[in-house]
Write a protein that binds this DNA or RNA. Structure first.
Lengths: 122, 122
DNA sequence: TATAGATATATCGAAACTTGATATATACCA
DNA sequence: TGGTATATATCAAGTTTCGATATATCTATA
């Protein structure tokens, strides 16, 4: 299980929210599921990140009450904090993707020649 | 000019040393040149990293005196600290490359669907 | 000879990031 | 009643980041 660094976490979280609104717990489950258990974004990584993204105006929060099956309509049950990707966040995501691609191709320039000069021959 | 994070720095530095021994300053110039000025590894990123790699036994240091053009043979001039990739470092590099590829392809799984669902259309 | 710029290694410190642990509370199932 | 899953959030100790700084040598030029 690979823990994601914040740069990658941000890219992944914004990518998930680009599909549709979601909330912390669901996002973390989504990441684990879609990476087939290889990626992990723990609560202590997730919530500070969401707070930061919210502060930067990249995502927009809204609280929604979770209705229990046979719950008293007047009782105040569990609340869920939904996040929506903002226009700014969408723009930021596009830039992050481009940046990510750029870093990838530049890194390939270092990694490939090395493996051609004697590495990974066994 | 993109500053490299330590994970990427380590991958790049080990890749450079996989070609042949080098030293801090030359490695940083090499990285800037081979990335056409896009990547940067500053002294404050380079030397702590080299120290860490040395402590972990991934690279092996050796001091060599730099002879000046018309220098007094007896004088002790500038010294240069060369680093050689160790067997352990070579093994580590192979693993890091594989890990890097794995992260790349997993990230692509998040990034690509997003750009298909409405992003980057303008 | 002076001096400026390039070469070369290295540390400091404030801010940011990382991560396991902890806290709190509700919902579902047997 | 107890155990597991859901759900958000903070803490604290450690690590990482990065511009600034320190030190010293080499080279070119006026």
């Amino acid at each position: 299980m690979l823990a994601l660094k914040q740069d990658h976490s941000q890219l992944v979280v914004l990518s998930v929210l680009a599909i549709g609104p979601s909330y912390g717990y669901a996002i973390s489950k989504d990441i684990a599921a879609r990476s087939e258990g290889h990626f992990k974004l723990s609560p202590s990584g997730m919530y500070p990140l969401l707070t930061k993204l919210e502060k930067n105006g990249l995502i927009t929060p809204s609280w929604e009450e979770v209705k229990a099956a046979g719950a008293d309509p007047d009782s105040s049950g569990r609340k869920r904090k939904w996040y929506t990707l903002s226009a700014k966040g969408k723009k930021q995501l596009e830039q992050s993707i481009e940046r990510h691609r750029q870093v990838q191709s530049l890194l390939d320039g270092f990694v490939t020649p090395s493996s051609e000069s004697g590495l990974a021959t066994g």
